[in-house]
Design a protein around this nucleic acid. Structure first.
Lengths: 198, 198
DNA sequence: GAATTGACTAGAAGATTCTTCTACATCAGA
DNA sequence: TCTGATGTAGAAGAATCTTCTAGTCAATTC
């Protein structure tokens, strides 16, 4: 009966996010999602095509939103240093302001290896490709080992975020923002200034 | 009939590892595991108590083996530099020599938030606690922000491992071993030599 | 060396959970 | 008012997981 456009779809996403974080994807039943969202089986399968696809949709939704913010900051950076630091800053801000989506992204990411998750992995590929292009276009010389460079840039902040999101500490990422930002910049700085070794 | 001790248990683990990597945990059915392993439903539920518990058991098995090697290297290190670098080296060696278990660990890690996974998370906690103790005991002064320091130490290598294990590139981690090892050491070196700022 | 015990295996029966399917509702635009 | 696109409903059916009882086998006890 009552239903504004996108009403049930969004209700399903909201209910699923809450339940998935409370109980995990596997232990959450379709019935629980239906009860919490007020939607019917038909709605769920109309909008998403199944429980796992709903989880995929949720992942895409959450990750896209994050990517948008992160890339916007990177694009508006003027100097290499601003760009390198912006990604760390935006990330740490994001996980505080969007705790639930962040948890779901970190926890669900790569959690399955299956061909069906193709489109889902493409999301990450696009993101990293843009990061690589940004590095190359700002670097003062050829950059080898791009994946390793990217890892040094954002690996620490990812790991810290994972730690902060899964533990229950009261400290905020603000305490480590400077530390992580400095670390990232010091790791990448050589790419933008000095000449390559060898 | 035929059954050596541990026979079915190990067969179940082997079959599960292969299937989980091929199809993901969710898309693998109990029946598939039984067929591939030659075990019966009874065996699976006797040894593990369910499909998810089997996945947990597999995770524990794989991760424990890795922790053992990693910590052994760390303990036998004489200088701080050897210790810092050993963890990176052992990790990169490990993922090459044990590709399947590594993939499962990275992919399955944290993949569910649920109270039942308590013992499972304890494994990681113990590992990181030992890393923290090692840092503190070798540092030349008080170390703040331990989780952030740990993240700088092993965050990049984790991220690179994830990349290498999920992509199909032919390059081996040997190409980046020096790069990542240097990065880790340069990040942590100040802890072991100079005085803290502020 | 028969009985007992405990660890393990077997597979049918039962319970749970997921998915499909058909019918109905709402709404914008012709 | 009709029409088609989109969304909703829930019963029926299919797939999957788990429990349960009944064994097998090897080692141990008396």
């Amino acid at each position: 009966m009552t239903s504004r456009p996108e009403g049930k779809r969004q209700a399903l996403l909201d209910a699923a996010l809450a339940l998935f974080l409370e109980q995990g994807v596997v232990d959450t039943t379709v019935d629980q999602i239906l009860q919490r969202s007020g939607a019917s089986v038909g709605s769920l399968y109309h909008h998403f095509g199944g429980k796992e696809h709903l989880a995929d949709g949720l992942y895409v939704e959450c990750l896209s939103a994050y990517h948008e913010v992160a890339l916007a900051g990177l694009r508006s950076a003027v100097t290499p240093e601003q760009g390198v630091r912006s990604l760390v800053d935006h990330h740490l801000t994001w996980i505080v302001d969007h705790r639930a989506p962040s948890q779901f992204i970190l926890v669900y990411r790569d959690h399955e290896i299956r061909p069906a998750a193709e489109s889902l992995r493409a999301l990450n590929t696009n993101f990293y490709t843009e990061l690589e292009h940004w590095i190359v276009s700002h670097a003062s010389h050829a950059v080898p080992l791009l994946p390793a460079v990217i890892s040094q840039w954002i690996g620490p902040m990812h790991m810290y975020a994972r730690h902060w999101l899964t533990s229950t500490v009261k400290t905020t990422p603000a305490d480590v923002r400077t530390f992580l930002s400095d670390g990232a910049w010091h790791s990448l700085q050589p790419l933008f200034t000095s000449a390559p070794k060898g």
